[in-house]
């Protein structure tokens, strides 16, 4: 019995080693992403710079600064998810990096998991910047629970857009990825009311926004601070969950190719 247990232990791959391997993968994924300055700088700086300009300079002390901290937060986490996965995976596929890793015992789930942790970490940095700027320079005041709720909703929002990025990244070339990802990212961000409040857009665009994935994350975030457009939250969660599932299925088909 004892020998059986021991050999099972040996076969079960020493759980600690698996965790250590995953930590190593995460650590290097983070380091590599930080050093990729053409990814790291825009991802970390653009939302804060835009918010500083539109939220703080034009809207300090008004509802605009409050509203935009939620929507630029959405803009930021959508960026880390879409760009990190969309461009990162496409480039790694094209360069043969993924091919080489497929030959090693590293499970694909660990590689994707490491990217997800990295994206969440970038999201956290973006949100922290925005929150500090909003509180210190934009005179934005929330309850502690609202700050935490906003952070929670937006961090979780990294997931559906990471999945969407993965679906794109597994199907387009490394060279084409930045263009295609930005073509999805930037127009849909604008049309979802992330840059300027959705209520300032013409009516037909406000209706069109319902078909934009970022709109639903922004509305959930705005819901936390009581500034949403009034749709039921179940609709937004449902749409985002649906996107996550469908995009993941598309990505899995792409990975198998």
């Amino acid at each position: 019995m004892i020998t059986a247990t021991l050999s099972e232990l040996a076969d079960s791959d020493r759980p600690n080693r698996k965790i250590d391997a995953f930590k190593t993968e995460v650590a290097y994924e983070l380091v590599a992403s930080w050093r990729q300055l053409d990814f790291a700088l825009p991802t970390v700086l653009f939302p804060a710079v835009f918010y500083l300009f539109f939220g703080v300079f034009f809207g300090k002390g008004s509802g605009l600064a409050t509203y935009l901290v939620a929507t630029y937060g959405a803009f930021g986490v959508i960026g880390t998810g879409l760009l990190g996965f969309g461009i990162g995976i496409a480039v790694a596929r094209e360069s043969g990096e993924l091919r080489l890793k497929r030959v090693t015992p590293a499970p694909p789930s660990a590689l994707i998991g490491a990217r997800l942790v990295t994206a969440l970490w970038f999201s956290a940095v973006v949100l922290l910047e925005l929150f500090v700027i909003a509180a210190a320079l934009g005179d934005v005041r929330f309850e502690r629970g609202q700050w935490l709720g906003l952070a929670g909703v937006l961090l979780a929002g990294t997931l559906p857009f990471g999945a969407l990025g993965l679906a794109i990244g597994t199907h387009v070339s490394g060279k084409g990825a930045p263009a295609i990802v930005n073509l999805v990212y930037l127009p849909s961000a604008f049309l979802s009311g992330l840059w300027i409040p959705i209520t300032m857009l013409p009516d037909f665009l406000q209706n069109l926004a319902l078909f934009m994935p970022p709109f639903h994350l922004a509305q959930l975030a705005l819901g936390v601070i009581g500034m949403d457009a009034g749709y039921p939250w179940q609709l937004h969660v449902g749409v985002l969950a649906g996107i996550t599932v469908i995009a993941s299925l598309i990505a899995m088909r792409g990975i198998r190719r």
Partner: peptide, 21 residues
């Protein structure tokens, strides 16, 4: 085949070693 362009030689070796028992 390719490898992460931004990791050093020492880091790549450390990473790949972590995959094996």
């Amino acid at each position: 085949s390719g490898i992460a362009p931004n990791l050093t030689v020492a880091e790549q070796i450390d990473l790949f070693r972590s995959y094996y028992p």
